[in-house]
Amino acid sequence: MSEQTNKKTATRLLLVAVAMFGFGYALVPLYDLLCDVTGINGKTQRADVSETKNQKIIFDRIVKVEFTTMVNTNLPWQFKALQKKISVHPGELTTVKFLARNISDEVITGQAVPSVAPSKAANHFKKIECFCFTQQVLQPGEEKEMAVQFVVDSKLAPEVDTITLAYTFFNSAKNIKPAKTDTGSTKNQSVAVVVNNSK
């Protein structure tokens, strides 16, 4: 068999490999798109005031909205919701408040990442204003009240009577290595797990 044919085959196959490498990267926007369209990742929707203004408020339906807050271990902040839960009517514009406090002695920028459960409610939970839209800067010891303005869309599936909105606050500085990778600290973590297991 001629060398020419082999080279041609090899080149074509190499192109397949390169294309599959690109496909790996293409999965990133595809994944985001899929999550946006279906809301399966709990990603919430951002909306304009105008969009929500002419929504009819459905007064005979009540949806409970619960708020959960978490702080990533890399962020020395305290963060809580000022109200644990609230009852709203679909279509009604509601504002809730959260409180964050920087307990370190450094200026730190944080970023909150929201998630909505159940996932079929995610597409119908529309935020007009949220502290998670931008990064938040807190001075050492500073306390800050932050607002979220939202509307529960009236198209929300009828079987959903409770929606949970969870926020996790992350440190937005790059390359923070939590607990250095020296064996000491990891050891403690693992031991903690072990203790947990053998109860």
Binding site: L13, V16, A17, V18, A19, M20, F21, G22, F23, G24, Y25, L27, V28, K174, N175
Partner: peptide, 22 residues
């Protein structure tokens, strides 16, 4: 191999850029 290994190479490349290149 031809269809799957490059995808893995892409995934670890993303890890690498996440770790060091922002």
């Amino acid at each position: 191999l031809l269809a799957s290994i490059p995808v893995f190479a892409g995934a670890v490349t993303m890890l690498l850029t996440d770790r060091h290149f922002g």
